[in-house]
């Protein structure tokens, strides 16, 4: 049986599955490999999605992967680097679905709780604390689970952000 006969086997012809761009990368948890992965990701998806969606996707992934790089090894200093993470992005009808897994320490639960932007004290401006606000504000269906020794974080960056275009509610 030829491959086309095998595909067409069965009484009801199957609709041809639409092929969509995807991106998969295994990288070491450091800012330089994160930067390269994001450059390659942009090259893959930029022709297919709007500049706005591409920018939101890149920002969210930078924040997530920077967090992994920054905290990789925090809790298991006896287990030396390099630590790896896996990035997978798949395009679907509503947006770009992303999954990031890594073998670092468990994510603190409060990262995923609804949070406010750091207080904007003009006399002592915050220099950090924006990362998880951006991640929460730019994603939908954000979920996290721990499986054996791995963190798994998944979410969607929607094509049409709707209410996400303004400042993140504080």
């Amino acid at each position: 049986m030829s491959s086309s006969e095998r595909q067409n086997a069965g009484s009801i012809p199957r609709p041809i599955a639409r092929t969509q761009s995807m991106f998969h990368r295994v990288l070491r948890a450091n800012p330089f490999e994160v930067r390269q992965a994001l450059r390659d990701l942009r090259a893959r998806f930029a022709p297919a999605v709007s500049a706005d969606a591409m920018g939101r996707l890149e920002l969210v992934l930078a924040e997530v992967m920077n967090n992994v790089s920054e905290h990789a090894g925090d809790l298991c200093a006896q287990k030396p680097a390099p630590r790896a993470m896996h990035l997978c992005v798949v395009m679907n009808d509503a947006g770009l679905s992303c999954a990031i897994t890594d073998d670092g320490g468990t994510l603190p639960a409060d990262c995923l709780l609804p949070r406010n932007l750091p207080a904007l004290d003009p006399l002592d401006l915050p220099e950090g604390g924006f990362g998880w606000c951006l991640i929460q504000g730019l994603t939908q269906s954000l979920c996290y689970y721990r499986e054996d020794q791995r963190n798994c974080l998944a979410f969607t960056v929607p094509f049409n952000p709707g209410q996400f275009s303004g400042p993140i509610s504080g």
Partner: peptide, 12 residues
């Protein structure tokens, strides 16, 4: 540029 402006806007 729009990508940079977005970060300032989203964080106020």
């Amino acid at each position: 540029t729009p990508n940079v402006e977005r970060v300032f806007r989203l964080t106020r």
